[in-house]
Amino acid sequence: MALTGVLRPGHAQIRVLDLDESVRFYKDVLGLVETGRDAHGRVYFKCWDERDHHSFVIREADRAGLDFFGFRVLDTATLDKLDADLQAYGLKTERIPAGEMLATGERVRFELPSGHLIELFAEKTKVGNGIPLINPAPWAKARDNGIAPIRLDHTLLYGPNVAAVQKIFTEVLGFYLVERVLTPDGNANAAIWLSCGQKVHDIAFAEYPEPGKLHHCSFLMESWEHVLRAGDIMSMNAVPVDIGPTRHGVTRGCTIYAWDPSGNRFETFMGGHLPYPDYETMTWTFDNFGQGLDYPQRKLHETFLTVVS
């Protein structure tokens, strides 16, 4: 089997300012499927085509932003090995017991030099996507509820020490660098796009002075038409849109950036090229960052660099 180690983004936990308003938004507008609530007041969601119990968790708090972002790894032996590898690299790890999060096994948590908490886990209950595994239909009814992305695709995080973060992902966790934007002087990376499989990115980082900031969580759409339909639904519901619909130069993905009711940015994303681990990294100079962000408009939108939660 070619895909081992870290498999994919598994969950994001996000802070919201008003739980009821946010549940309505994530269920009815974004069109996620609610799968549970726990004693901590957290509400669990999945995208309709995901099979694991949840990929997106919200909790009410007095500030917006990201609590942590988790990746599913192949199995428990991989989890133990990566835990040991992270410690050998010099990072402190913490074991979160199975069951602390609904339907989820033990998690290994560590803090990046960018101030973000990252988790690894090997077990989460498979609840299915509403389609039988024998003679499956191509989609289920939940596909038509709201924007209805098919999976949590990736996240972009803002914080300091991106070079050190890149080393952890590439030297310990088995990711590779797909694309990057150079700083204005060309001597370092202002932003990096990292993949653990053949997706154009599973996580991305941009250098930013404040630690632990969320730029966006991204949700995968099936087609450009579904991205445009997402834009229609955003406007029907007066969702504040940041950028798009347009195409990124970086990743070639098609996109809309918008904000949830607490100011957490999300993305409806589709497409992108298919990298392999042996491909050379693609590099954007800072003076071409505008094309990298918004290829048709060639515009480095100010909000992209300054608005985070």
Binding site: L17, D260, V307
Partner: peptide, 11 residues
């Protein structure tokens, strides 16, 4: 300045 419009970004 206009940012997230949801009380989260502070701009």
């Amino acid at each position: 300045p206009v940012g997230c419009r949801g009380g989260g970004c502070g701009v």
